[in-house]
Amino acid sequence: MLELRLVQGSLLKKVLEATKDLVTDANFDCSATGFSLQAMDSSHVALVALLLRSEGFEHYRCDRNISMGMNLNNMSKMLKCAGNDDIITIKGDDGSDTVTFMFESPNQDKISDFEMKLMDIDSEHLGIPEAEYHAIVKMPSSEFQRICKDLSSIGDTVVISVTKEGVKFSTRGDIGTANIVCRQNKTVDKPEEATIIEMNEPVSLTFALRYLNSFTKATPLSESVTVSLSSELPVVVEYKIADMGYIRFYLAPKIED
């Protein structure tokens, strides 16, 4: 028996919008810790890891660990039927091949339930080691989104370099080149508007902009984004989900042969 009641149902709607273009089918895992997902894109270059901690739900019942395979496009279709202010409850039974999403309007005058078919997904689960990163950049998520979008009109790949000068995003394409440098800036009115660069060593890595642009679909989930870089590791682009957990995207770098 599984019953998860999420008062801020819009969070789940936003999570689906952030993931459904990157991953087609995924297993949602439910345990005492929370509601989580780990899935790779079809080319095995990018990975999304989601955690919504059990404490963030108003009611969280998960009698035993359960994995539910869902088509994210179909799940998104169902969640789009929930209002932004609706409370969403996810219900499942052991051995059932369906999951139910119940939507309640804030004043309880409309209650809907949508039952979706589950699927068997033979997914690969990757072990992601804890890592020390050479550089961690925290910046407004809207700024990161803007940079990725702007650069992708010039080139296909971006070189992200962190030095003591700041973080530089560079691209080149048929029409020319572009460089955007963001310097540390802590003197802002609100902490989420700050750009904070923690650097242990300079690092420079190349990534496909197509994937970074896809990650920025998570921008509505958080005012700030953290980009963690190490020369031997995939980049981690993390959006914290207030009081609940996170959505993290990993992207393997392009490497010179």
């Binding site: 790779m40 095995h44 270059v45 990018a46 990975l47 690969e124 689960h125 990757l126 072990g127 992601i128 080691p129 790949t157 190349t206 496909a208 031997e232 590791l233 995939p234 990993y250 393997a252 770098p253 392009k254 490497i255 010179e256 042969d257």
Partner: peptide
């Protein structure tokens, strides 16, 4: 020449 690496080059299958 620049190649796209794969996640399994860095992370292990569990």
């Amino acid at each position: 020449q620049i190649f796209q690496s794969l996640l399994v080059d860095f992370f292990n299958n569990k």
